[in-house]
């Protein structure tokens, strides 16, 4: 099985250790992983700010770069959702796109799939506030969206974390409200974005969270930036970083 690691542009540039953590977890399963160096960005920032034509170019580029892999694994639910849910409208349906949609996985979902539900041997004696990424929840349908009245789909991020020794989860009053990042929204609608983020932080802190965890670095950079400015004692970690730290301390 040829596995490609798809590292979103902002992870590549701003939080490379999340990519490294993903790599370690995948290799820890005995998988051989490649990083196609021609990759840059899936196009989501352009698509979401209205640059359809430019996003379309990057989508075609993505299809070329990742054409020959059996699995494309990415530590960002949001970027996976762009590829597997949004590309259709951008580049039109085709067997080539269908294959890419079929093969692209959010990291936690892929890890659970590979492990077949075996618990991880790891220790993380901290109270974790698991921030549900909107795109994990409502695009990829990983976890329970509070609006829907139906048996909730599995949440691989929670599943992986819950298997760690010593971990506990902060109970939240609003379990799946958006953090207010939203890409360019964070800059263009600064006031609302800030308020949304501060409200999320208050909820997590009320639940006793020491560590803020998510499948998406973008939400975390926003929340962490707000927390650090206010010197709040909260560590923001991607789920992959937590898993690696837990494995190391096992």
């Amino acid at each position: 099985m040829r596995i490609a690691l798809f590292v979103p542009c902002y992870v590549d540039q701003l939080r490379p250790r999340v990519g490294m953590a993903a790599l370690r977890l995948l290799e820890g399963l005995g998988l051989e992983v490649e990083f196609p160096e021609a990759q840059t960005c899936c196009g989501q920032p352009l698509l979401n700010s209205g640059g359809r034509r430019e996003a379309c170019r990057l989508a075609h580029r993505f299809l070329d770069v990742f054409a020959n892999y059996d699995r494309i694994v990415c530590p960002s639910a949001s970027c996976v959702a762009t590829v597997t849910r949004r590309y259709r409208e951008l580049v039109g349906e085709s067997p080539r796109l269908a294959a890419i949609e079929e093969r692209t996985r959010e990291l936690c979902a892929f890890l659970v799939e590979q492990q077949g539900g075996q618990p991880l041997a790891g220790r993380f004696p901290h109270r974790v506030g698991l921030h549900a990424s909107c795109h994990a929840l409502r695009e990829l349908r990983q976890g329970a969206a509070s609006e829907l009245v139906q048996p909730p789909p599995a949440d691989p991020a929670r599943q992986l974390l819950a298997s760690l020794e010593g971990i506990s989860f902060a109970e939240l009053r609003r379990g799946d409200e958006c953090c207010g990042f939203g890409g360019a929204f964070a800059l263009e609608e600064e006031a609302v974005s800030r308020r949304m983020g501060l409200d999320r932080l208050a909820d997590h802190r009320a639940g006793g969270a020491e560590v803020l965890a998510s499948t998406d670095v973008s939400c975390l950079l926003h929340l962490e930036g707000l927390a650090r400015r206010r010197s709040l004692p909260l560590r923001a970690m991607h789920v992959a970083e937590i898993l690696v730290e837990a494995l190391d301390s096992a």
């Binding site: 969206a145 958006c178 939203g182 929204f185």
Partner: peptide, 9 residues
């Protein structure tokens, strides 16, 4: 349409 984070709720 930009006054939105695309959270999907």
């Amino acid at each position: 349409p930009f006054a939105c984070t695309l959270c999907g709720s």
